[in-house]
């Protein structure tokens, strides 16, 4: 489930509010809030669309797992999904490396 909006990185662009397919976030005067965490389906797409790598979706789909943002910043987790699919300038080459065709038919 979505656990973290890093207030230091978030620019209040509200992209997450728009792209979340299950409407988990709400806009505010400042940065968005996680208003309906229980509706999160752990699809990681908000993270993927966040241009500031300010979001963190915990992999635990069934229950909340409060996550310490300070500790998180020490890891490579923030933005790791976006980098892996090639949605950053530095990793654009990864967009075309799908190797599924080598895995089918197994």
């Amino acid at each position: 489930m979505i656990e973290v909006i890093d207030a230091e990185r978030c620019t209040s662009c509200d992209i997450c509010v728009n792209v979340c397919p299950t409407n988990v976030f709400d806009k505010t005067e400042g940065i968005p809030v996680i208003a309906r965490q229980g509706d999160c389906q752990t699809c990681f797409l908000c993270e993927l669309y966040c241009p500031e790598d300010a979001l963190y979706v915990s992999p635990y789909a069934e229950e909340p797992r409060p996550t310490d943002v300070v500790a998180l910043r020490q890891t490579a987790a923030l933005g790791s999904y976006r980098r892996a699919v090639g949605w950053t300038d530095e990793t654009r080459d990864l967009r075309g490396i799908d190797r599924s065709y080598l895995l089918f038919g197994h």
């Binding site: 915990s58 992999p59 490396i97 799908d98 190797r99």
Partner: peptide
Amino acid sequence: DVQRHMRASQPNFFLPFDRT
């Protein structure tokens, strides 16, 4: 080889594992 192809093809498959 298969491990490498999996990572390239489906990065989100590894999120639950990498993050735990």
